[in-house]
């Protein structure tokens, strides 16, 4: 890890002005993506701005029909939260399946969302639940947020404060984890609200995506066999040492069927 200057601002305003002053600043939340990346010198920031002292960025609450999770809330806190269990239990399950216990004790939802790893779990949850990302300066609809692999609509110095999830009738998340890291080889999140179905798939392609074909099929007929005729194009999928593109395309439908079955 290269050397850097460490800062621990007390307010969001200070965090943003530290970022502006730095040659190559970066925010630090749980550090479970950033620190490994710095160790292998994929990241070499001049200034690391630790968000942990900022007020009001962690915690979970319900707010007029939505579940709001602060950016610094750890995966473990979401996994074990009773507020989440009452509102959207699929998010307990999603968070409980991230990495391992130690990773969940440090990693945060804000870090995961800002990072937009193609195999991360949260992006699927945000997409399928039509979440809103609340930052220091605006609210961003999830459909505009995850723009490309490791890319989001966030400006360079923009800070996520929280993520707001509309509470839906039912939802679930099923993933086929990589046996080593437990990142999603393919993960499918499905939500149902008033006859509308949203299906988001992570792990399969360069960036999380909504599968509109599955959404239409399931909105007409919410049953496993509604997906029988659906075939995703392997050309759009990732192929790597964990799984070929063809296998991932196949897994998307298998995982989606399992998700549907668990909601019936």
């Amino acid at each position: 890890m290269y050397e850097f200057t460490y800062h621990k601002p007390q307010t969001i305003k200070d965090a943003i002005s530290l970022f502006a002053k730095a040659d190559d600043g970066i925010y630090l939340a749980g550090g479970h993506t950033l620190i490994p990346a710095m160790k292998v010198r994929l990241r070499a920031p001049t200034d690391v701005i630790d968000l942990s002292a900022l007020d009001g960025l962690s915690g979970i609450h319900e707010e007029s029909g939505a579940l709001v999770i602060g950016a610094l809330t750890t995966h473990d806190a979401v996994a074990t939260s009773e507020v989440v269990a009452r509102a959207i239990p699929a998010l307990n399950k999603l968070a409980a399946g991230i990495g391992d216990a130690q990773v969940r004790n440090r990693g945060t939802i804000g870090g995961s969302v800002a990072n937009n790893d193609p195999a991360a779990d949260y992006p699927a949850g945000l997409m399928a639940l039509d979440a809103t990302i609340r930052t220091d300066r605006r609210e961003i609809s999830v459909d505009d947020f995850f723009t490309a692999m490791f890319e989001t609509a966030l400006e360079e110095d923009e800070l996520i404060r929280s993520v707001s999830f509309p509470i839906v009738e039912s939802a679930t998340y099923i993933k086929f984890p990589s046996p080593a890291s437990r990142y999603a080889t393919v993960g499918v999140f499905i939500s149902r609200q008033g006859g509308q179905v949203r299906v988001a798939i992570t792990g399969a392609a360069a960036c999380v995506f909504r599968c509109t074909e599955m959404e239409t099929a399931l909105s007409n007929n919410f049953a496993e066999d509604a997906l029988d005729s659906i075939q995703l194009n392997a050309d759009d999928m990732n192929g790597d040492m964990h799984a070929s593109a063809e296998y991932r395309a196949h897994l998307c439908v298998v995982m989606a069927k399992r998700a549907v079955a668990s909601l019936l």
Partner: peptide, 11 residues
């Protein structure tokens, strides 16, 4: 429990 190789001492 945390993995101390993935926490900065300053944290």
């Amino acid at each position: 429990a945390v993995k101390a190789c993935t926490v900065l001492a300053v944290q």
